[in-house]
Design a protein around this nucleic acid. Structure first.
Lengths: 139, 139
DNA sequence: TTCTCACTTGAACAATTGTGCAATCGATGA
DNA sequence: TCATCGATTGCACAATTGTTCAAGTGAGAA
């Protein structure tokens, strides 16, 4: 997969004078955390699964409820829940004949709401930077 | 793509008595925000791209620096940056002959650090729920 | 203007991921 | 015990995504 054969050979070919400085930037986080975090994001990064999460954020629901609510088959919903559960995003418990799902913890709920909030707005501004079009203030 | 033909026909086949209540749960967020948020997550949900973000979180860098630091080709890095930029996660500006990239805003930075923090720990506990193994306290 | 450097883009292939059907599991009730 | 209901899983197919090479762009130097 994608891997740096030698991550510490950070010796840019562009001369230091052209940049601000060059303090040999370190990875900041270990590869395992990076992998874990990205798997978490990818699990949430699907409209169908995120919609499930937004419903579970209001309280636990059983698979049948979710299936009817989504207009999808039991199997389809179950598969999506499986992905979310494999990343410890949601948890389940049996309730009589049904199995209820809920968000794993407040941490996850914050993440979901944070992203949904971020999706509504689009501020994005920083001195000297552009983000709108392709070549806006690139001189 | 994945879409409910009729999202408001939420009438579960399982009887209400078996559940706590059934207040006809609403979508909570609109489809557009859901789509936007999930695209954002998916863009971050890749180890290689998340690693780039973790480096940009320490300050802006030019493409060549990133390429050397990652041990990848310019093209590869540029493609990854393109994905991140298409979701307004990062912004760029020209610095002489080089093009520097940086995180778009504090919002994004919070998201990244939040996830990396989340990846390090694994608390996940809630009354009545299990999250560890498959069938722990299912009955 | 022309050349070169720094970077971007297009396109094709490989790899990963999502979907739906059918078979299966597991708990409850007869 | 057996039948049934709710939910999960395996598998195959389709769709999406990541990677790489080669060609292209655009700003600055000659």
């Amino acid at each position: 997969m994608t891997q740096s054969p030698d991550p510490d050979s950070a010796e840019p070919s562009c001369t230091p004078e052209e940049h601000i400085a060059k303090p040999a930037r370190k990875p900041l986080v270990d590869e395992v955390s990076l992998e874990t975090a990205s798997r978490l994001f990818r699990a949430i990064g699907d409209p169908a699964r995120l919609r499930l999460l937004s419903k579970l954020a209001q309280g636990e629901m059983c698979v049948t409820e979710l299936a009817v609510s989504e207009g999808e088959s039991l199997s389809t919903i179950s598969q999506r829940l499986r992905v979310l559960r494999s990343e410890n995003i949601i948890v389940r418990r049996r309730q009589g004949k049904h199995i209820s799902y809920g968000l794993a913890d407040q941490h996850v709920m914050d993440l979901v709401f944070n992203a949904l909030a971020h999706a509504s707005e689009r501020p994005v501004s920083m001195p000297g930077f552009s983000s709108k079009s392709e070549k806006e203030d690139l001189t």
